[in-house]
Simulated scan of single mutants.
Amino acid sequence: MTTRNRLLVLVAAVIALAAVATASVLHAAARADRRNEAHAGGPTVTAGRVTLPAEPTAAPRHLVFRNMAWGPHRDELTTVPAGRPDAPRTASGVKCLRFYAASGTAICLRAERGAMQDTYTARVSPSGRYAAWTVFVGGDSYAGTNFSTRAAIVDTRTGRLTPTLEDFRVVKDGRTYRAADINFWGITFAADDRHFYATLATHGQTYLVRGDLRTRTLTTVHENVECPSLSPDGTRIAYKKRVKGLSADAPWRLYVLDLRTLRETPLAETRSVDDQAVWSDAHTLTYALPGDYGADLYTVPADGTGAPHRLTKAAVSPAYL
């Protein structure tokens, strides 16, 4: 098997994340022999390999996600045509708790043996150069305030690792801000391979921050923003917002923030979404909600119109390739 036909691990076990998870950055997987295996009551899953094109092509888009259907391929990365999300799934043999990919580079988070926490986020920059991940390493509930995070970024070209965003200078209200309780999560990259957005939490409040990899600064932009996701054109942020009056265990609603005007738009999804949404295109968001197999994927228009639609069952952690 040639190098091109192997699943390449560019950075394996990049950093030990408090004995909770390891991160692997993957590049370009090829097809392998397949065998059909149907599972009663769930999606049909076919063994194989997930293909990640290194460069944009004219080929139809595919949707890659963590398969949650019970059977031998549960937790494996699987792929379907983006236009046929309920088609039979091709499983890769690669198991991930969180996954994301762009321009031929992917990040896969795996739990270490004995780890009980399963809350992670992962992202890749549009060019594929940078990969980022967050692991929640303490506390009983992410919905509360008793938790701690580790957010890291790796440059896949140079191998340079930023093990924590806590090394960056935080600028809040025009001044350098320091606090012992700062946490970061939910990194999302701009297309310029320099800037990114993330959530900062401190003193019971959350903020959207804009990061700069060159100056190593993080500047607050807007309050009450969690798990941001930058739109393909770089003008909007989709995010979870805590809404007063909702249950402490399910406090979030999906919103979109216009970065120029800072105008917030509530989306048509009225259930609590505990996920970092993905832009499937310039007009639509994809996200996970609890389902019979653990989670299902849904879509909703990004302009506040329409209604949520279930995309496919037994799936989580989507990426469009």
Results as ranks from 00 to 15, higher is better:
A319I: 08
S247W: 05
P43E: 13
A91D: 14
G41N: 14
P251W: 01
T145K: 02
A13C: 05
V64L: 06
S317D: 15
P88L: 12
R263Q: 13
A288Y: 00
I153R: 06
Y207T: 00
L321A: 09
L97C: 10
G245L: 02
R110V: 12
V14G: 13
G41M: 12
A268D: 08
V170W: 01
S92T: 13
I182P: 01
Y142R: 13
A131L: 02
L208H: 04
A282L: 05
V80G: 08
G139C: 03
V170P: 04
L259Q: 12
V94R: 15
V171S: 06
Y298Q: 05
F184C: 07
T265F: 03
A87L: 03
F184P: 01
H222P: 01
K241T: 03
I182A: 06
A12V: 01
H27E: 11
N67F: 09
N183D: 12
R260G: 06
G48Y: 11
Y142M: 11
A314T: 07
W133N: 00
S148Y: 02
L10R: 11
R178M: 09
A302S: 12
V273L: 14
V11Q: 05
W279K: 07
E269A: 03
R84Y: 13
D86H: 10
R6C: 06
V14S: 13
L200E: 09
R194V: 10
D181Q: 01
E55K: 11
T299G: 01
G294N: 03
T51C: 13
A58Y: 09
T219W: 00
V171R: 09
L161G: 11
A87G: 01
F196G: 02
L17S: 08
R89C: 00
R150H: 10
R236W: 00
T219Y: 06
A69C: 11
L246I: 00
I107D: 05
E223L: 05
